[in-house]
Amino acid sequence: MSTQKTVRQPAGEVEENALRIGTDKAEQIIDALNTDLANAYVLYHQLKKHHWNVEGAEFRDLHIFLEEAYEHAEEGADIIAERAQALGGVPVSGPANLEERATVEFEGEDVYDVRTSLQNDLGVYGDIIEDMREHIQLADNLGDYATEEILREILVHVEEDAHHIEHYLEDDTLVLESATK
């Protein structure tokens, strides 16, 4: 077993890549991807927290939905990280680095009622959607059409999950008012 502790690539350093995207362009794209990666993990942890703590008449449906949503966030994060690496970068990792890098904020450790939790999730989703759209445009402007396509595919899932949360937040329900008191 090797005991060497050689740094192969320092975080923040961009190497040449086999994709033939110049280092100057790759740096900009990797920077955007690392923001998307950090945001995805903030969302992941918030959704996971809500999955653990959801209660009420819609418990089962929300519990299942939140699990699917945090799995989507994690799958998207993995794809984003692998793309950043393929472009010659180092994907951001570690809780402190992810928190520092994210443009969205984790709601904290407190447990909120279901409606507040979902509203908080919807806010994070909205911010992520806006950032991803900007990053899709950036990739397009820099001629990285594969990253553009990858982000578009992830964005579809992000928007679908946000839309489902929007439906959960509607006022119409089959739960009787007297049953909720």
Rank of each mutant, 00 (worst) to 15 (best):
residue 91 P to I: 01
residue 97 N to Y: 11
residue 171 D to W: 12
residue 57 A to D: 00
residue 8 R to V: 14
residue 159 E to L: 09
residue 154 I to S: 00
residue 173 T to I: 14
residue 84 A to C: 02
residue 158 V to E: 00
residue 29 I to V: 15
residue 24 D to W: 08
residue 165 I to R: 04
residue 48 K to D: 03
residue 144 D to K: 05
residue 174 L to A: 14
residue 155 L to I: 13
residue 108 G to S: 03
residue 17 N to T: 11
residue 58 E to V: 11
residue 46 Q to W: 13
residue 99 E to D: 01
residue 170 E to M: 15
residue 59 F to C: 00
residue 93 S to I: 11
residue 180 T to G: 03
residue 43 L to C: 04
residue 97 N to V: 10
residue 146 A to C: 02
residue 127 D to T: 09
residue 23 T to I: 15
residue 162 A to P: 03
residue 120 N to S: 09
residue 32 A to H: 03
residue 161 D to F: 14
residue 81 A to C: 04
residue 49 K to N: 08
residue 35 T to R: 01
residue 34 N to P: 11
residue 136 I to F: 05
residue 177 E to P: 09
residue 124 V to H: 06
residue 145 Y to Q: 09
residue 56 G to V: 13
residue 163 H to L: 15
residue 168 Y to V: 11
residue 31 D to V: 02
residue 4 Q to R: 12
residue 74 E to L: 10
residue 79 I to H: 07
residue 5 K to T: 12
residue 92 V to D: 04
residue 4 Q to C: 03
residue 71 E to S: 08
residue 172 D to S: 09
residue 154 I to N: 01
residue 72 H to W: 07
residue 102 A to W: 15
residue 50 H to V: 06
residue 92 V to H: 04
residue 92 V to I: 15
residue 136 I to G: 01
residue 157 H to C: 06
residue 34 N to M: 11
residue 72 H to S: 12
residue 29 I to S: 02
residue 156 V to D: 05
residue 162 A to I: 14
residue 109 E to F: 15
residue 143 G to V: 05
residue 80 I to G: 00
residue 6 T to D: 02
residue 67 E to A: 12
residue 62 L to P: 02
residue 174 L to S: 12
residue 51 H to R: 12
residue 108 G to Q: 06
residue 128 I to S: 02
residue 35 T to V: 09
residue 155 L to G: 01
residue 168 Y to N: 01
residue 119 Q to A: 05
residue 28 Q to P: 06
residue 83 R to C: 05
residue 140 D to L: 06
residue 141 N to E: 15
residue 136 I to V: 14
residue 60 R to V: 06
residue 35 T to D: 06
residue 146 A to S: 03
residue 98 L to D: 02
residue 45 H to R: 07
residue 32 A to S: 03
residue 163 H to E: 05
residue 138 L to Y: 13
residue 119 Q to G: 00
residue 22 G to H: 03
residue 79 I to E: 12
residue 70 Y to G: 02
residue 114 V to Q: 08
residue 69 A to I: 13
residue 172 D to N: 02
residue 75 E to Q: 08
residue 148 E to C: 05
residue 69 A to W: 14
residue 128 I to G: 03
residue 20 R to W: 08
residue 67 E to M: 11
residue 55 E to L: 10
residue 178 S to Q: 01
residue 78 D to L: 10
residue 30 I to T: 04
residue 90 V to I: 09
residue 2 S to A: 02
residue 35 T to C: 01
residue 54 V to Y: 10
residue 94 G to M: 07
residue 165 I to L: 15
residue 105 E to Q: 14
residue 118 L to F: 15
residue 96 A to S: 07
residue 44 Y to I: 08
residue 81 A to I: 10
residue 17 N to L: 11
residue 98 L to M: 13
residue 62 L to A: 06
residue 108 G to E: 02
residue 171 D to N: 03
residue 10 P to V: 11
residue 105 E to A: 11
residue 156 V to Q: 02
residue 44 Y to R: 08
residue 167 H to C: 14
residue 19 L to C: 02
residue 33 L to Y: 09
residue 5 K to R: 13
residue 53 N to I: 01
residue 95 P to S: 00
residue 130 E to F: 05
residue 37 L to R: 12
residue 145 Y to L: 15
residue 34 N to L: 13
residue 7 V to A: 04
residue 61 D to I: 12
residue 34 N to H: 10
residue 122 L to I: 13
residue 142 L to G: 04
residue 18 A to W: 11
residue 140 D to H: 08
residue 9 Q to Y: 14
residue 123 G to Q: 12
